[in-house]
């Protein structure tokens, strides 16, 4: 059975639901000469380039809700007013973060007062001015930040994420 993992997914599922695992070894052996039909897959996920907002929509220190890389992955865009790690735009102060806490997936909320994201789940805190560094908390990673690009029209695109997002084993599903 183990050797069949390389079969295309549909075939594999049929195989697993089939008559018996005991036959797997024999089945695998007979399949060996067949060319591996696994298509080559790239080593990293292909991130979509998604327009999240236009610079003109951002007000200083006012978070704008977004989602990236898809609608099930909430995040936020913030214009912080000072150059920060990962910041884009003329002042290098526009940043984007996932707002799903990487500890247990609770939704983060933004504090304008100290430019942090906080988690009601178990009190985790992340610093938007330090690349999403976990100030304090239980997550074993810092907060996922977006790779942003701004085009000539001022449209802000997200084109990648720098940590695994909570609740998915592939950042792009």
């Amino acid at each position: 059975m183990k050797r069949c993992e390389r079969m295309v997914d549909a075939g594999r599922r049929r195989f697993l639901s089939g008559a018996g695992v005991a036959a797997a070894g024999a089945a695998a052996a007979t399949m060996l000469p067949a060319k591996a039909d696994a298509a080559p897959t790239p080593a990293r996920v292909n991130y979509p380039s998604n327009r999240l907002a236009n610079v003109s929509q951002l007000k200083l220190n006012e978070p704008v809700d977004v989602a990236y890389p898809d609608k099930d992955a909430p995040g936020v865009l913030i214009k912080l007013g000072a150059r920060v790690p990962g910041g884009v735009g003329p002042n290098g102060d526009i940043v984007g973060f996932s707002t799903v806490c990487p500890h247990k997936g609770f939704p983060l909320s933004y504090s304008k007062e100290d430019k942090t994201l906080s988690c009601p789940g178990h009190y985790g805190r992340y610093d938007c001015e330090k690349g999403g560094q976990q100030i304090w908390g239980h997550a074993t990673q810092n907060l996922a930040q977006y790779a942003l690009r701004i085009d000539a029209k001022g449209d802000i695109y997200a084109e990648g994420v720098d940590e695994l997002l909570y609740g998915r084993l592939s950042n792009v599903l």
Binding site: V45, P85, K130, N142, V161, D162, E163, L164
Partner: peptide
């Protein structure tokens, strides 16, 4: 920049 693993899956 703070430490990021760049793990995407």
């Amino acid at each position: 920049m703070t430490y990021k693993r760049q793990t995407d899956r």
